[in-house]
Amino acid sequence: MDPALEALAEQVARLVPRADLGWPEPWLEPAADRTGWAARVAELRAVHNRRVLDGADALAKAAPPVADPADGAEAAAADVREVTIEVAGGTISAQLHLPRGNGPFPAVVHFHGGGFWTGDGAVLRRLDGALCARLSARLTAVVVNVDYRLAPEHKFPQPVEDGYAAVRWLAGHAAEFGVDPGRIAVSGVSAGGTIAAAVCLLARDRAAPSIRFQALLAPALDLSVHLQSEPGGFRDEFRRCIDLYLALWQDRRDPLVSPVHAEDLSGLPDAFIGTGSHDPLRDPAELYGLRLARAGVAATVRRYPATHTVALPETRAARTADLFAALDAALRTTG
């Protein structure tokens, strides 16, 4: 690993330790006190979320982001509002970024990371919200930052179905927000990348809505691996997240769980996949790019010098520039 990246990763890990974090027990069977269990999960999630925000602050302080001159004042001026989306058995919320003007606009439906069980509420609104605001301004696009329901209270397939419902909701409200329904993309980070990829499979198999592009950053595309890894560190966290997300009896090679195992990848939207050189999730994500390409999908893959969560400022800038360019190229033209 690049010494500067290694030092930064160590610094962030030292400033914001994670080894002391408590984890919820996966919901195994109906117990007497499901309410009490859910309350404990919520408490633990809040602690994890706090730590995620602290980690982001520590990273920003230790290695401040490179200012991008292309980000003008327009990013701040964009209209941001909260919306409610109906999903099976309830509702979810989302942060909606609207560009100025009358459209028709392209659109991006974005899914935050957090191991399928954290990253909701204030976390996605702050961390992913900043990215979504820039995306909206730079692409002149409507961006939906989705607060999908989380495991373990809402195990697979609910987060994926919520994601699918969010894209359908946007397509259904296209006229209201000036969205061109033929120019909708999905994007996702980490677990959000898993959801974005799975939503594309669902949209293809259900023949609607039409998704033109998928942008996956450090996505987890094979949840059937890493189960035997030694305790401690990211791999152990990854295993815990999967146990929270999936029922014990869930087939971990189901394509909607692990898209890399989908037999047929033809007819999926073109893709941009960003991976990290020192991310345990790297190989399945790169393999997914290759498998998409072999199925006739134009798949762009770039491996950045990065861990799952930490990258040097210039790497972060390059990654964002690639993401913007890929989405812009895919969404700019109609037809």
Partner: peptide, 21 residues
């Protein structure tokens, strides 16, 4: 052609691959 794409990715080069069916 596809192996070359894979090696470029491993070298950190941004690479788009498409197999035309």
């Amino acid at each position: 052609g596809e192996a070359y794409a894979r090696r470029l990715v491993e070298a950190g080069v941004r690479t788009t691959l498409k197999r035309w069916p």
